[in-house]
Design a protein around this nucleic acid. Structure first.
Length: 745
RNA sequence: GUCCGGUUAGCUCAGCUGGUAGAGCGCUACAUUGACAUUGUAGAGGUCACAGGUUCAAGUCCUGUAUCGGACACCA
């Protein structure tokens, strides 16, 4: 028979729970345990060597500064998933990393240097600028890692990756070379989005459309020109080479094929009338002035009409480069000059105010100037043979395009998206996708592995031998390397054990605003390079807004620093506030008051523990008398709660799971069960007293387990203080998740 | 133009496969040196935007209307 162990209530429970006093120490203990690393868990027998795996790569924060609430939400969601699956005994891996974020970081550092020293990157030179950016990135990286740890994130730091480190560099170079050899990366002279302020090309996704008022001018090129055209940009008309009309338009049919020569505002211009069925005869005059060098659509019209002459009349600084009075003027100034000239010549027929969407660069705010440039592109519509495919619905050896791979991976439910409605958004984007311009005229990033010598071109991971080779000066779009992230972090292109074990990853969790930039590109890269999907599930969280439901922004001054909140209320409370009430894909307003409420909850857990410890100093876990009816009822309710929470987590309804865990613990266990247990515990029926003690201990340990993914710090702090025979493992971090059926202990 | 989402308690939002509504904060009254005032008990407060429809039964499914918001595309 057992000797009831005599325990005492640890002293720290006599004080209210103070997160600050415990959180950092607990995180250190976790790190020291090594259990964030699945290899250690296997060695320690916590996970079996053949246990199922669960892996997530952390969306790497940019090394541009510090973490914001969006990052905090992301970390909370991912950590909950990871902790849950780790407790399920899976080989669970969550890989941390940071992103060099090419343009974002370079422009930030450039502006800092300019503010301090009034120096530009050209004053510093490539090497010096890169050195300073490197230092900035390093400092920023350390800040971010520190903040990430404060949130309680159980990341395997031994596998930390940085997009510019040596391993990732190799991956990026290899990816480029492979795609180049398959003909999927090509160099082409095409209209690109040129950012005159940033002096670089940008992708379609880095454009922000701004609605502005503009004037639509209808005019004739010269007095004897037979067709009037309309434009909001008269200054570009000096670069026109054609007027396109619909082939069936009776008004203009007779002119098709004719060429007209004239001088337009000092510039000699030659315009041919061409037929193009894309032209809408109902719109405007039914005729389009074609400026092939300064409009994507016009470039394509010129292609279809086989027009080879495409004079560039605007340069990289958004200034005119032509003969005559317009030369050297900025486009806006040139527009005024041209309009005045049209008026003088009596060629202007109408002016109309219209609202139009102006393309601006997301990063610099400059108005995008479409320019023809020799750049590197990824061909998304080009057919090729996929040698190896594990993608459902795609046979090895079949003919595919990158676009078709991107569609198939989602279409066949190989990849699930939560919430599902974003699938449509995804398809929509893929359908509208054009060849992706991947070269950037900035210095910070992965330099393109291509060298030139006279007419020779060399592309390989390693530089060519011999003299006279010059490397392409451009770097790659940051999303090129980000697209490789699920497998570059696992050691690709080496065939590592990690890659075999943890890819495809289980979940990709990120904000819905980043689905195109990143999610789509990871699918592209992974299906092409590995013949695998990058992840089985996509969980999209919403934007964190302030309590008035406004976006957090610098200009509104409503940015909340997660670290301030953690200092005030503890990481657990911050995590709960970012989960409860936040359905996937929906924005969530963050109010400090609710965080305060959740801090109270952590104290509630603390005090329930204290109560149970106080009443179980003579506790014995020997099976004694049979459970009372009420005891059994309590255990059944506990069982049901475990089942519901487990199901909700499995379905990625973390907000429901957290809500239920919270509600059960406070309003069932604390408010009802504890209250009604008081007379039992102080009563004379010793058998009933003993079984109730056992039931309460079961309720507590089980609750700590299912609460742990949500509020890891307070639950682990308590776990560490509990009598050892109440625990199945020394760390709650790796304790066994309560089973949904069977006995609870 | 195409697509999508919201409209539920004073505020901010949950509510999965349909069964006479929930949380946090706020409000009212009472209690309390008793695990916890970072508290407890009780309570007020909602015709779940509106109108039709399906159903024994509809915030929950269907149709339409209003209104707010978002994404994408874009024509000169």
């Amino acid at each position: 028979m057992s000797n009831p162990q005599k325990t005492t209530v640890p002293e720290l429970f006599l004080q209210p729970y103070e997160p600050k006093a415990h959180e950092e120490a607990i995180y250190e203990k976790w790190e020291k345990s090594g259990f964030f690393n699945p290899d250690v868990c296997v060695e320690a027998g916590i996970a079996t060597a053949d246990a199922p795996t669960f892996s997530i790569v952390l969306p790497p924060p940019n090394v541009t500064g510090t973490l914001h609430m969006g990052h905090a939400a992301m970390l909370a969601v991912e950590d909950i998933l990871v902790r849950y699956h780790r407790m399920q005994g899976k080989r669970t891996l969550w890989i941390p990393g940071t992103d060099s974020a090419a343009i974002a970081t370079q422009s930030k550092v450039e502006s800092l240097i300019y503010k301090e020293k009034k120096l530009t990157r050209h004053d510093l030179g490539r090497e010096e600028l890169l050195k300073q950016i490197g230092e900035f990135a390093e400092a920023s990286k350390n800040t971010i890692i520190g903040q990430t740890k404060r949130m309680g994130s159980s990341l395997d730091w031994s596998r930390y990756a940085y997009t510019l480190d040596d391993k990732r560099y190799r991956a990026v170079m290899t990816a480029f070379v492979n795609m180049y050899r398959d003909g999927l990366i090509y160099r082409g002279n095409r209209i690109v989005n040129w950012d005159p302020k940033g002096q670089t090309t940008i992708s379609d996704d880095e454009i922000v459309y701004e609605e502005r008022q503009a004037t639509l001018y209808t005019f004739k090129y010269s007095p004897d020109f037979p067709i009037a055209v309309a434009t909001t940009r008269p200054e570009t008309k000096v670069g026109d080479t054609a007027v396109a009309v619909h082939p069936d338009d009776e008004r203009y049919k007779q002119y098709i094929g004719q060429t007209f020569e004239f001088v337009f505002c000092d510039v000699p211009v030659s315009v041919t009338i061409v037929a193009d069925s894309e032209v809408d005869p109902e719109f405007g005059t039914g005729a389009v002035g074609v400026t092939p060098a300064h409009s994507k659509i016009d470039w394509e019209i010129a292609n279809r009409a086989h027009l080879t002459r495409r004079p560039q009349v605007i340069n990289e600084y958004a200034k005119m480069s032509v003969t005559g009075r317009l030369n050297g003027l900025k486009t806006e100034a040139a527009r005024v000059v041209v309009v005045n000239w049209l008026k003088e010549q009596d060629l202007l027929m109408a002016e109309k105010t219209v609202t139009q969407n102006v393309s601006t660069a997301e990063r610099t705010g400059a108005i995008i100037e479409p320019l023809p440039k020799l750049q590197w592109f990824i061909a998304v519509d080009k057919e090729f043979t996929i040698t190896h495919s594990e993608i459902p619905g795609v046979q090895s050896g079949s003919t595919v395009t990158l676009k078709s791979l991107m569609v198939k991976a989602v279409e066949n439910d190989a990849i699930n998206i939560f919430p599902e409605r974003f699938k449509r958004v995804y398809y929509n984007w893929v359908a509208n996708l054009h060849d992706w311009c991947i070269s950037r005229q900035i210095w910070f990033g992965h330099r393109i592995p291509v060298w030139y010598r006279n007419d020779e071109i060399y592309c390989d991971v390693k530089p060519p031998t011999g003299d006279g080779w010059e490397q392409d000066p451009d770097t790659l779009d940051t999303w090129f390397s980000s697209g490789l992230w699920t497998f570059s972090t696992l050691g690709w292109p080496e065939e590592t054990a990690d890659l075999k074990t943890y890819h495809p990853t289980a979940v990709l969790e990120t904000g819905y605003d980043i689905i195109f930039f990143w999610v789509a590109r990871m699918i592209l890269m992974s299906t092409y390079h590995l013949g695998q999907i990058p992840f089985r599930n996509v969980y999209l969280h919403g934007l964190v807004r302030d309590e008035k439901n406004r976006k957090m922004s610098k200009s509104l001054g409503n940015i909340i620093d997660p670290l301030d909140l953690i200092a005030k209320y503890g990481a657990d409370a911050v995590r709960l506030s970012l989960i409860i009430g936040a359905a996937p894909g929906n924005d969530l307003p963050l109010s400090e008051q609710s965080i305060k409420g959740y801090k109270n909850f952590t104290n509630k857990i603390w005090n329930v523990t204290r109560f149970i410890l106080t009443h179980t100093t003579d506790y014995s876990n020997e099976p004694a008398a049979t459970l009372t009816d009420r005891d059994q009822e309590i255990l059944r309710a506990l069982q049901d709660t475990v089942t519901e929470i487990t199901n909700d987590i499995e379905k990625y309804n973390l907000h429901l799971a957290a809500q239920k865990a919270y509600h059960y613990f406070w309003h069932e266990l604390a408010d009802k069960i504890l209250e009604e247990s008081k007379p039992v515990l102080s009563g004379t029926d010793s058998a009933a007293r003993l079984t109730r003690q056992q039931v309460l201990v079961t309720c507590l340990t089980t609750s700590l387990k299912f609460l742990h993914p949500f509020v890891p710090y307070v639950t682990e702090t308590i776990w560490q203080e509990m009598p050892s025979d109440w625990r199945d493992r020394d760390f709650l971090l790796v304790a066994n998740w309560p089973t949904a059926s069977g006995k609870l202990k």
